[in-house]
Nucleic acid binder design. Structure first.
Lengths: 149, 149
DNA sequence: TTGAATGCAAACGATTTGCAAACAC
DNA sequence: GTGTTTGCAAATCGTTTGCATTCAA
């Protein structure tokens, strides 16, 4: 539950109300949040919080490898809790909900093909998928089993 | 040669010295360029050029589908000529040289796997590879045929 | 000639830095 | 108590907008 706070503490950080508030918001979200959004949400629990502290806390958490930064459609940077071993995110274009997925053989196949085709040696990639999550597919589509809806 | 200029002209744009300068720089580059870099290079041929016009011309060119925007390691946005049908870029981490490659079956396999695993319907992706180009691999490595170098 | 394009200055949004006050340890 | 952290104000960076001037057609 508080293992993010634990890790911060173990790495020599002081545990302040501001940090608890930011960490609390980020641990729980399913939707990537911008620093401003994190500020608003975290102020519900710690009203004195400032935007600068959000940025600084984001850096701390990121240094622990707990954070994933994603590019939103509106061009903003937003942040998600990074689950260990899952390296990429799919983001719902409608509700924003994000899920992570692991790299697999298909990515290796892609890299091998591109290395072959370009003579580059590839050692990194930026990959992010987008689409509709199951709930948004449901609510966007008329129900096919009731054609007279 | 001047087919970018042609296309701009055909789509109703006036062909000015500023636009020629920006288009000229972009048509030729192998390395993704930031707006500032484009400005500096284009000023060699048209010194009165302003940064604002670079941005506006980038938008014009992008509207013709001639431009690819990439994310550089330093976080900057940079631009490349987009070759038709090639949808993604590999960028050399050392010299910056970029090459495009086409999507293939491996990307479709990846999308299919992630749709299966997450129940999302996927309809878009952000993909960019990085590594070393052939020349940079050569110059970074000691030559293995002369072990006494 | 005339509307489109330019480029400067200024506005803007995201992020970082300087610094005195507040706080965890 | 002491050194870390905070939060404000201000600086910075990339990008966009207002507007009078310049220019392609």
């Amino acid at each position: 539950m508080d293992n993010w706070v634990q890790r911060l503490s173990n790495s020599g950080c002081r545990i302040t109300a501001s940090r608890r508030a930011v960490v609390g918001v980020l641990q729980q979200t399913e939707v990537p949040l911008t620093p401003h959004e994190i500020l608003e949400l975290a102020r519900a629990v710690h009203p004195r919080l400032g935007l600068v502290t959000v940025y600084r806390t984001l850096n701390l958490i990121a240094a622990q490898g707990l954070l994933r930064r994603v590019h939103r459609h509106d061009g903003c940077h937003a942040y998600l809790p990074a689950s260990q071993g899952h390296n990429h995110a799919v983001i719902c274009r409608r509700c924003g909900r994000a899920v992570e997925f692991a790299g697999g053989d298909d990515i290796e196949a892609l890299v091998a093909r591109v290395e072959q085709a370009t003579s580059y040696r590839i050692d990194g990639h930026l990959l992010q998928l987008s689409g509709l999550c199951r709930e948004c597919i449901r609510s966007a589509l008329p129900d096919p089993s009731h054609p007279k809806d």
